[in-house]
């Protein structure tokens, strides 16, 4: 019974669709990585072509903070 570890899980906004596949974005498994460290997360993505969306709040919030932390390590 291995638990699946995800550090962040973001629901897809209902209005977002993949521009190419026209599929609504859904929550899917993704991975952030920086300076040799990986962070498993769930992000909105196209179920078909797997195009990932990183919302601004996440990029300028948590992601930026962790980048800075890692840079100071």
């Amino acid at each position: 019974m291995e638990e699946k570890k995800v550090y962040e899980s973001i629901e897809a906004d209902a209005s977002l669709v993949c521009g190419q596949c026209q599929e609504p974005l859904v929550k899917g498994s993704a991975k952030f990585s920086y300076m040799g460290n990986a962070f498993p997360v769930e992000l909105p993505m196209c179920p078909k072509c797997k195009l990932i969306y990183v919302p601004e709040e996440l990029a300028l919030g948590r992601v930026l903070k962790v980048e800075k932390e890692l840079e100071d390590k």
């Binding site: 498994s29 952030f32 990585s33 992000l43 990932i52 300028l60 992601v63 980048e67």
Partner: peptide
């Protein structure tokens, strides 16, 4: 309308 950036790489897991 908007632009932002991050340094982390992101990819499908």
């Amino acid at each position: 309308y908007r632009a932002y950036s991050h340094r982390m790489m992101v990819e499908e897991a």
